[in-house]
C-alpha cells in the first residue's frame, strides 16, 4: 500500500489553502494564520515502489508547480515550519467506506493508461496543514464545520 502526498513547490501559491483560510476566518476563528492544502492518494494493490513513484510523478503531480512524497519519503526538501514560529496541526479527511469516490475511479483508469495494468484500489483524501495557536476544540470545530461532513467523511487530527 502506498500513500502519496502532493505538495506545492516553494514559491508557488497554494490557492486552495488560502481559500480554506478565508473560510476559517469566515466562521469567526481568528488564530489560524496560514493553511496549506495537499491532495492525498492511497494506492493499494500489487505495485512496487518504482511504479508508485511513477504514478506520483507522471500522473498525480504537476511537474512545474508540485512535488510529491511516497509513504512520506521525499527526495525534495521536506516541509518546514521554520518560517512560522507557531504550532502546526494536520487534518486529514477521507471518504467513509462505501461512499462513491469519483476521483479514485478516474485515477484507476489513468494508471492503466500509464501501462501499469494491475488490480488495485485507490482512495483520495485531503490533507490540511494549519498554522497557528489552535486549541483542540477549535480544531475539531474547523474539521467538522468546514473540512469534513462526518455523514460521509471521517477526519483525523495529527
Amino acid at each position: 500500500m502506498f500513500k502519496i502526498e502532493i505538495l506545492t513547490k516553494k514559491g508557488f501559491k497554494n490557492s486552495h489553502g488560502k481559500h480554506v483560510l478565508s473560510d476559517i476566518t469566515g466562521i469567526g476563528i481568528r488564530n489560524v494564520i496560514k493553511v496549506e492544502y495537499s491532495p492525498l492518494y492511497i494506492i493499494d494493490g500489487d505495485i512496487n515502489f518504482v511504479e508508485a513513484k511513477m504514478i506520483a510523478s507522471e500522473l498525480l503531480s504537476d511537474k512545474i508547480i508540485e512535488t510529491y512524497t511516497v509513504n512520506n519519503h521525499s527526495e525534495h526538501d521536506s516541509k518546514s515550519t521554520a518560517t512560522f514560529n507557531c504550532a502546526l496541526f494536520v487534518v486529514e479527511v477521507w471518504y467513509k467506506t462505501g461512499v462513491t469516490d469519483t476521483v479514485s475511479e478516474s485515477v484507476m483508469k489513468a494508471v492503466k493508461d500509464l501501462g501499469i495494468i494491475k488490480e488495485m484500489k485507490v482512495k483520495m483524501g485531503h490533507k490540511y496543514y494549519l498554522y497557528g495557536k489552535i486549541s483542540q476544540t477549535v480544531l475539531n470545530n474547523i474539521a467538522t464545520k468546514l473540512l469534513a461532513n462526518t455523514l460521509i467523511q471521517e477526519y483525523k487530527i495529527k
Binding site: L59, V103, A110
Partner: peptide, 10 residues
C-alpha cells in the same frame, strides 16, 4: 475525465 487529479491531466 472530470478534470480529476488536475485539468486535462488524464
Amino acid at each position: 475525465y472530470g478534470d480529476d487529479i488536475a485539468s486535462g491531466k488524464i
